[in-house]
Amino acid sequence: MFNPTRDQARQFFLDTWARRQGTQPLSQMETLALNIIGRHPEYQALLDQGDRALTREYPPELGETNPFLHMSLHLAIEEQLAIDQPPGIRAAFEAQRAKLGDEHEALHRMLDCLGEIIWRAQRDRQPPDGAAYIACVRQGLDD
């Protein structure tokens, strides 16, 4: 999925969840998405709502986490780790996972960093800072 709209990204997760018990094989991206959904049972009821889930808003000022954004960031991180992009991100993640002893918690720390880096890049109208991203993921390793 290259630069999907909000609705296309949401529909991808809805379709993947709907196909989980089907007989058709899943694409590699769908398999990754299904694994992410499996790690987040709190989102599965939403995905069961189908088209009703497409229009729901998740205003951050109300403290709501957007499950579609959360799962999309997980998907982006899976791709980053697979190709080690930015260079060194896989080693930073592995170090954090080893320290925490919990892969999912390490992924969530990485997700928080990615969200922050994307927000800064948008705010500053600059490309994302890969070095700052890696430094954020590595934060707390020396404690």
Score class of each variant (00 low, 15 high):
91 A>D: 15
79 E>K: 04
142 D>F: 11
24 Q>N: 10
102 D>E: 01
67 P>C: 06
4 P>K: 00
1 M>A: 12
12 F>Y: 07
72 S>G: 10
124 D>F: 09
81 L>S: 04
88 G>H: 01
137 V>W: 04
110 M>V: 01
95 A>M: 07
115 G>Q: 09
141 L>I: 14
91 A>C: 01
27 S>I: 08
36 I>K: 06
66 N>D: 15
48 D>C: 06
121 A>W: 02
1 M>W: 08
44 Q>T: 13
110 M>F: 02
124 D>G: 00
69 L>R: 12
76 A>W: 12
140 G>R: 10
108 H>I: 07
121 A>D: 00
124 D>Q: 14
34 L>D: 10
30 E>G: 05
96 Q>Y: 02
47 L>V: 04
16 T>Y: 12
131 A>G: 01
102 D>C: 01
70 H>I: 03
4 P>G: 01
123 R>G: 02
2 F>S: 09
121 A>Y: 01
97 R>N: 08
140 G>A: 12
24 Q>I: 04
90 R>C: 04
1 M>Y: 03
11 Q>N: 05
8 Q>W: 00
17 W>S: 08
128 P>S: 02
93 F>H: 07
92 A>S: 11
140 G>W: 10
118 I>D: 00
90 R>F: 03
92 A>N: 04
16 T>F: 12
129 D>G: 00
70 H>W: 13
127 P>T: 08
91 A>F: 08
52 R>V: 13
72 S>L: 10
73 L>W: 00
39 R>A: 15
20 R>Q: 14
131 A>T: 08
98 A>K: 12
94 E>A: 14
135 A>S: 15
56 R>E: 15
13 F>M: 11
40 H>R: 12
39 R>P: 02
119 W>H: 10
32 L>Y: 10
47 L>G: 08
127 P>N: 09
29 M>I: 12
78 E>W: 01
143 D>Y: 07
88 G>N: 01
78 E>L: 02
62 L>W: 12
105 E>C: 06
83 I>E: 12
143 D>F: 12
31 T>L: 14
12 F>W: 05
16 T>R: 13
19 R>G: 10
134 I>K: 03
138 R>F: 03
102 D>S: 01
107 L>A: 00
9 A>W: 05
59 P>L: 07
41 P>C: 11
133 Y>T: 00
31 T>Y: 07
115 G>S: 08
125 R>M: 05
118 I>T: 07
59 P>Q: 11
97 R>I: 02
104 H>K: 11
18 A>F: 11
141 L>D: 08
141 L>R: 13
83 I>L: 08
45 A>R: 14
27 S>V: 06
109 R>I: 10
2 F>E: 13
143 D>V: 12
4 P>Q: 03
47 L>I: 06
81 L>M: 06
31 T>W: 09
27 S>C: 05
18 A>C: 04
87 P>A: 13
